[in-house]
Simulated assay, not measured.
Amino acid sequence: MIELSAMNKLQFEDFMSFTLKQYAQEKITAGTWLPEHAESRALEDMHRILPEGYLTQDAYFYNLIDSSVGDGQVIGFIWFNIYLRNGVREAFLYDIHIAEEYQGKGYGTRTMELLEKEARKLQAERIGLHVFGHNARAMSLYTKMGYEAKSITMYKEL
């Protein structure tokens, strides 16, 4: 059984260090950023999305805790912000990560269910997210959970 546990400031700093590197690498893999600029561009994006860092209003950072393991093992994390877009209160999922050794065991599905529950508590009317085209596992999870593509950008390398 997993549950959400709000990150403290120190946990947030560790999370941000990890997520910046992961985000930069995803952009490199997607072919949208050059490796030599990826880290600085990732940092720019984070400053835009989280202008006050950990204290950014309507930004929510949670550790995923498996309560069935002793005192509870951190198995990953989730981050989303709440926005008002076109008159609709939306939770936008920026990051979800399940540690590799816990992947394929239903934790992703359960995490998305917990996200829905938390978003409802925060009076969100919908959840939005972005997924990289090369991340087939994530696309499969989101499709299974009822998410639909609203816009797709495609490329063909020549």
Score class of each variant (00 low, 15 high):
33 W>R: 06
35 P>C: 00
38 A>Q: 00
44 E>W: 03
54 Y>F: 15
51 P>W: 02
100 E>N: 12
59 A>Y: 09
129 L>Y: 07
37 H>C: 05
31 G>C: 07
87 G>E: 08
47 H>Q: 15
68 S>M: 09
71 D>V: 06
96 I>G: 00
60 Y>R: 06
96 I>F: 02
49 I>N: 09
124 A>V: 06
42 A>R: 02
124 A>F: 03
95 D>E: 13
128 G>A: 15
116 E>H: 12
118 E>T: 13
95 D>I: 03
108 G>E: 05
133 G>E: 02
52 E>G: 00
77 F>E: 14
27 K>S: 08
93 L>H: 08
110 R>F: 00
68 S>C: 07
53 G>V: 01
117 K>Y: 10
105 K>Y: 06
111 T>G: 02
60 Y>W: 15
86 N>R: 12
33 W>D: 02
53 G>C: 04
94 Y>Q: 09
46 M>D: 09
47 H>E: 14
101 E>M: 09
96 I>Q: 00
95 D>P: 08
60 Y>C: 06
32 T>H: 01
131 V>E: 04
48 R>W: 05
30 A>G: 13
91 A>K: 07
46 M>R: 13
100 E>H: 05
28 I>C: 07
59 A>C: 11
29 T>K: 11
48 R>K: 13
45 D>T: 13
50 L>A: 07
117 K>T: 14
32 T>C: 08
94 Y>C: 03
130 H>M: 08
77 F>A: 12
45 D>L: 10
67 S>R: 13
36 E>A: 03
48 R>L: 10
57 Q>H: 10
32 T>S: 14
131 V>Y: 05
51 P>K: 04
81 N>H: 05
67 S>F: 03
40 S>Q: 13
76 G>T: 08
68 S>T: 15
128 G>N: 07
59 A>P: 03
37 H>M: 07
51 P>N: 03
90 E>P: 01
132 F>D: 08
27 K>M: 11
63 N>D: 12
55 L>R: 12
26 E>M: 09
92 F>C: 04
25 Q>R: 12
25 Q>M: 11
80 F>T: 06
56 T>P: 00
39 E>A: 14
49 I>K: 09
73 Q>V: 13
55 L>H: 13
36 E>Y: 08
34 L>F: 05
118 E>F: 02
131 V>I: 07
70 G>P: 09
82 I>T: 15
121 K>L: 15
125 E>A: 08
110 R>Q: 12
119 A>G: 13
105 K>G: 05
36 E>K: 10
39 E>Q: 12
121 K>D: 13
38 A>N: 00
81 N>M: 14
46 M>H: 12
83 Y>R: 10
81 N>T: 15
112 M>T: 10
115 L>T: 09
